[in-house]
Computed example of a mutant assay.
Amino acid sequence: MGEAITDRHVVAALRPFVRATGPMVDALREADPFGLVAGSEAGEAGEEPELKPKSRARLVEGLRSVRVPGTTAWSRMAAGERTDWWINRVGRFTSLLTAVPGLGGALADRLPIQDTLGAASQGVLLCAIAGERGVTDVGDRVRLVAWVLFEREIPAELAQGRFAGHDTAEEDAETGKLTEELDESSRRYGKVTLKASARTLWRLGRSLLAISDELEKRPSGRFYHHAIGMLPVVGMVGGYFGERAGLKRVAKRADEWFARNT
């Protein structure tokens, strides 16, 4: 029998995870896609070019109404609506990435790949949801992720990394490694690409292998999702719908945590 995973082990794994996840989701949230926010502000200030073609004006106005981070429509959404956006829109993408190992059926099920990617995906979305609720402190996000995914009630002081043996420099180095793909993508292309996001998700998942026994506790699908997931090829379908069901449970548990702690 392996060594029991303590709260300190969980915190040591989650602090760099949360720190690496935060910049990714926060950058997306604060972004101004297509320059819509800037364009909207310019329009309100009367700085729009008078000779702009009507068709272009309609297009810009239509894009401003799209509910994505950075737009005027997004800023008017309630926290609950933004949570639904992360779970239902971004969650489809992360669920698909997580379900891909299901192509191998029972063989892939014996490996921690799906739980690894699944826990990372759920953790990313939890940090995004936390941001929409104004929860930006690393320690608070650690407590949120630990409670929702692993059913752990982490003391606030421990979640802040205030315990014997905690190495701040080591945590900084690990955080830097987890965000290497994002940094490189930003330097090379001026933005975070889909490929960089997928690779970072895998790195985030691997960082949780130190507490691999905890990953099995995360919210997941029903028994029939797991049964389908044991089959070759179609296992991906079962895995996808299982991850989608798990995300709904993640959102529900997150609401419970916010109600108790904010």
Rank of each mutant, 00 (worst) to 15 (best):
Glu3Lys: 14
Val11Phe: 10
Val11Ser: 07
Arg15Lys: 10
Pro16Asn: 09
Phe17Asn: 03
Ala20Met: 08
Pro23Gln: 07
Pro23Ala: 04
Val25Glu: 04
Val25Cys: 01
Asp26Glu: 14
Leu28Cys: 03
Asp32Tyr: 05
Pro33Tyr: 09
Leu36Val: 10
Val37Cys: 13
Gly39His: 06
Glu41Tyr: 15
Ala42Lys: 13
Ala42Tyr: 00
Glu44Ile: 14
Glu44Val: 15
Pro49Arg: 14
Glu50Cys: 01
Leu51Phe: 15
Lys54Thr: 12
Lys54Leu: 12
Ser55Phe: 10
Leu59Phe: 05
Arg64Leu: 13
Ser65Phe: 02
Val66Asp: 03
Pro69Ala: 06
Thr71Trp: 08
Thr72Ile: 12
Ala73Lys: 08
Ser75Tyr: 14
Ser75Lys: 14
Arg76Ile: 02
Glu81His: 05
Asp84Leu: 12
Trp85Glu: 01
Trp85Leu: 08
Trp86Tyr: 10
Arg89Asp: 13
Thr94Gln: 05
Leu103Met: 12
Gly104Phe: 14
Ala106Asn: 02
Leu107Trp: 13
Arg110Leu: 15
Leu111Cys: 06
Gln114Cys: 00
Thr116Asp: 02
Gly118Cys: 11
Ala120Arg: 10
Gln122Val: 08
Ala128Glu: 11
Ile129Val: 15
Asp140Gly: 07
Val142Ile: 11
Leu144Pro: 06
Trp147Pro: 00
Val148Asn: 00
Glu151Asn: 11
Glu153Ser: 07
Glu157His: 07
Leu158Ala: 06
Gln160Gly: 05
Arg162Ala: 14
Thr168Cys: 02
Ala169Asp: 08
Glu170Phe: 10
Asp172Gly: 01
Ala173Met: 09
Glu174Asp: 09
Thr175Val: 09
Glu180Phe: 13
Arg187Thr: 01
Arg187Asn: 02
Arg188Met: 04
Tyr189Phe: 14
Gly190Trp: 09
Gly190Lys: 04
Val192Gly: 05
Thr193Cys: 08
Leu194Ser: 11
Leu194Tyr: 11
Ala198Pro: 09
Arg199Ala: 11
Arg199Tyr: 12
Leu201Ser: 04
Leu201Cys: 00
Trp202Met: 09
Arg203Gln: 14
Ser207Lys: 11
Arg218Pro: 03
Arg218Asn: 04
Gly221Phe: 02
His225Asn: 15
Ala227Glu: 05
Ile228Lys: 04
Met230Cys: 12
Met230Asn: 08
Leu231Pro: 01
Val234Pro: 05
Met236Ala: 15
Val237Pro: 01
Tyr240Trp: 04
Gly242Tyr: 05
Gly242Thr: 01
Leu247Met: 10
Leu247Gln: 14
Ala251Thr: 07
Lys252Cys: 02
Trp257Pro: 02
Phe258Ser: 04
Ala259Met: 03
Arg260Cys: 01
